[in-house]
Nucleic acid binder design. Structure first.
Lengths: 164, 164
DNA sequence: CTTATCAGTCTCCTAAAGAGACTTTATGGT
DNA sequence: ACCATAAAGTCTCTTTAGGAGACTGATAAG
C-alpha cells in the first residue's frame, strides 16, 4: 500500500502537510530560505541522499513552491522560492520558536534580529483582526459554506462524539 | 539504513521536525487539539493504521507532548496535550493559514472565529518585541553563544558559499 | 586531451507504513 | 454464569520510501 495521502481531507492542515509534510521537505525549504539554492549546496549542508533530494525538489517545483532559475550556460538550475513558497516562512518561524523554547530550553543556537526594530525577537502568532496574541483555545472553528455538505455532517458528528 | 535523524543538527527547525515531523504526527495533534482524545476516535477520524497510531502516541507521550489520562476503570487512557504540546498550536495555525490561502484559494473549509474580538480571523506572525508583522526577509539570523564553536564555523562557511 | 565538477540516475538494501487478523481486559445484557 | 460487544492494542504480511554509494552525461578548467 502506498502511504496514505491526505489530499481528500477537508482540512487545511492536512492539505498543507500533504505537500510539505514529507521527511526533509521543510528542512530543504529552510536551506533555500537561508540562501542555499543549488543541488550540491543542499547535499552538503543537509546530508540528504541524492535520490530523495531530487524527488523533493521535483515535487516542490511541481507544486509551485520552488522555481528553477538557470545559471551558467547549459541546463543547470538554481532553486528559488516563489511567493507560495515564501509564505511558508511563518510555518518555519513557529517551528523555530517552539524548538528554541522546548528543545533548546530558551538557549537557541541562532538568534533572530528584527531588522525594523533592531531587537532580538521571537515570532508570535496574533489575530489578524484585533492584533491580540491567539492560540487554539482562543478560537472557534466552524465548517464554512465551502466545505461539502457530507463533510460538514461528519464534522458535526465527530464533534458530538468528543463532547459526550 | 534507518531514516536520517535530525537530532544532531544545530537548528531548532530540525529539532522540532525530528519530534513532530513524521508522517501523521501533526494530524494526530490537530485531532487532539479539537478534542479527539481516544485511540478509537483517532482511528475513525484519521483513517490511520493501528500500528502507526500506537507508535506515534508512544513517541508523543515519551516526548512530553501528550500525557495519558485514565478513564473508565482499568488501564484505558485518553491522550491530552501538555503545555509543551499545546504550544505547538501556532505551528498548526500557520499551516492552516497557508493551506487556506494556497490550497483552498481563500475559500477555507473551516472558519476560525476569535472569541475575544468575535471576528473571523487568520493567524498572523509578528515580532514579539515591536508587534509588527514579520517574515523571513525581515530577520537576520546569527549563531548565538549557545551554538558550539565548530558548528558556528561551518555555518559561516556555508553562508559565504551561498553569497559568492 | 585529460581531469574535475555539477546535477542527476540507477541499483541494492533496510526501515517504515498499510491492511487486517488476533489478543486481552472490561463491560452489558439475559 | 454465559455470551456478545467494545476498546486498545499486538502481530504478521506485503508494499513503499529512504539511505549509501556507484555510475552517467554535460560542461568547464588546466
Amino acid at each position: 500500500m502506498k502511504r496514505t495521502d491526505f489530499s481528500d481531507m477537508h482540512c487545511s492542515i492536512a492539505q498543507a502537510l500533504n505537500i510539505v509534510g514529507e521527511w526533509w521537505t521543510l528542512l530543504i525549504l529552510r536551506d533555500v530560505f537561508i540562501g542555499n539554492h543549488r543541488f550540491s549546496g543542499l547535499l552538503d549542508s543537509l546530508g540528504i541522499s541524492r535520490k530523495v533530494l531530487t524527488d523533493r525538489l521535483e515535487t516542490l517545483v511541481a507544486e509551485g513552491i520552488l522555481k528553477q532559475v538557470p545559471y551558467d550556460t547549459g541546463n543547470r538550475f538554481e532553486y528559488h522560492l516563489t511567493q507560495k513558497g515564501y509564505e511558508l516562512g511563518p510555518v518555519l518561524l513557529t517551528l523555530i520558536a517552539w524548538g528554541d523554547k522546548w528543545v533548546f530550553k530558551n538557549q537557541p543556537p541562532i538568534e533572530l534580529t528584527h531588522k525594523a526594530c533592531n531587537q532580538i525577537t521571537s515570532p508570535q502568532v496574533v489575530c489578524s483582526e484585533c492584533g491580540e496574541p491567539v492560540s487554539f483555545r482562543d478560537l472557534i472553528g466552524e465548517p464554512s459554506r465551502h466545505m461539502p455538505e457530507d463533510a460538514q455532517q461528519r464534522w458535526k458528528k465527530l464533534k458530538e462524539d468528543h463532547t459526550s
